[in-house]
């Protein structure tokens, strides 16, 4: 059974370079790109007006941008090697809180993830190390450090409850760490090829992983067993995002296609094309009273919003 999603709105030239990351808040969508600024769009208006531009966030461009689901916090990682933490005031304006500086060399952090409450940040690195940082303390210290086999950690995620960290690596490894015990829970049989996206389901029961193998694999967090495979992408899978309810998984690929997968039936229910350049990022917007919505950003420098067709 397929679903219909309609293009709601497209912001052309959202950035003067590839849009590398989108991150949603309840009423806002944040975007980051190869340019130095972060943009904030109002998602409550039909034309998604630009609400704020944070200039000079990262001079060489921004490769990762994430938000906390339930806290007014965001984090960005730039090509110059810094990780910057942001906070939104009551008026919805974002401002910098500080940089993660504790005992990491500039440039060693690659992917980042925030826990739902914004208290923790997980980071992957080029040398394979996975770290967790506490953002509730003023100095934002590193509180966990996990060693892996040294393969580039291309992606990382924190479970919503903050209990687990998952990482995907260039050599195809996928690791699940228990943040309570500070130990490795599972080294998951990977997909051999680079893993470019990992994502915990909202209830933290499942973790999805995908990459150059063009297959999306679902694993059980507790047992570490693989429970499903989604095939259909023709290009490298670069991004994964679960819908709020955990019913759907949104994936974006290097071949500019986005797909929506229904977890229950393990099938692809919709495919959308976002120009002819890599689709770097695909994100659901938090469910409001309206129907399900998602946003796509990529090499065509535009951000497109889609809405589930009523019916």
């Amino acid at each position: 059974m397929s679903k219909q999603y309609l293009t709601l709105h497209t912001i052309d030239n959202a950035h003067p370079s590839d849009v590398f990351a989108l991150a949603a808040k309840k009423t806002q969508l944040l975007s980051a790109s190869g340019s130095s600024f972060i943009r904030v769009y109002d998602t409550t208006q039909p034309d998604f007006p630009l609400r704020q531009t944070i200039d000079g966030a990262h001079p060489l461009g921004i490769h990762h941008l994430v938000t906390a689901k339930e806290a007014e916090k965001a984090a960005s990682a730039g090509f110059e090697g810094k990780v910057r933490i942001w906070r939104a005031g009551e008026d919805g304006e974002w401002e910098a809180v500080g940089d993660i500086t504790d005992s990491n060399k500039p440039g060693s952090i690659w992917a980042i993830a925030l826990s739902a409450d914004g208290a923790y940040l997980a980071s992957s690195s080029i040398n394979g190390k996975i770290n967790v940082w506490s953002l509730s303390e003023a100095s934002m210290p590193q509180i966990r450090s996990y060693e892996t086999k040294g393969s580039f950690g291309l992606c990382v995620d924190l479970s919503a409850d903050g209990r687990f960290t998952a990482s995907g690596h260039e050599n195809g490894s996928i690791y699940i760490f228990n943040n309570d015990s500070g130990r490795l829970s599972h080294s998951v049989a990977g997909l051999v090829q680079p893993i470019r996206a990992v994502a915990f389901s909202p209830a933290s029961k499942l973790v999805a992983a995908a990459g150059d193998a063009r297959i999306i694999a679902l694993y059980d967090v507790l047992s570490g067993e693989q429970i499903a495979n989604f095939t259909g992408h023709g290009g490298w899978v670069l991004s994964l995002d679960w819908s709020d309810t955990g019913e759907y998984l949104l994936s974006g690929s290097h071949d500019s296609k986005a797909k929506i997968w229904r977890i229950e039936t393990r099938s692809c229910v919709a495919t959308h094309s976002h120009g002819d350049r890599p689709l770097w990022t695909a994100r659901w917007l938090p469910k409001s009273t309206r129907s399900e919505m998602f946003a796509l950003g990529g090499g065509n420098q535009a951000i497109s919003f889609y809405r589930e067709a009523a019916g």
């Binding site: 003067p16 370079s17 590839d18 590398f20 190869g34 340019s35 130095s36 001079p59 060489l60 461009g61 490769h63 090509f79 110059e80 090697g81 440039g107 490298w236 290097h254 890599p278 770097w280 090499g299």
Partner: peptide, 28 residues
């Protein structure tokens, strides 16, 4: 990363495609 600091590869500089190429290499 060093090349991204070059004036010619900077944001708003004369070679946006080079900047894009370098960033694409780094991303993938």
């Amino acid at each position: 990363c060093r090349m991204l600091e070059w004036e010619i590869c900077a944001a708003g500089g004369p070679e946006p495609e080079w900047r894009r190429g370098l960033q694409t290499m780094l991303m993938l």
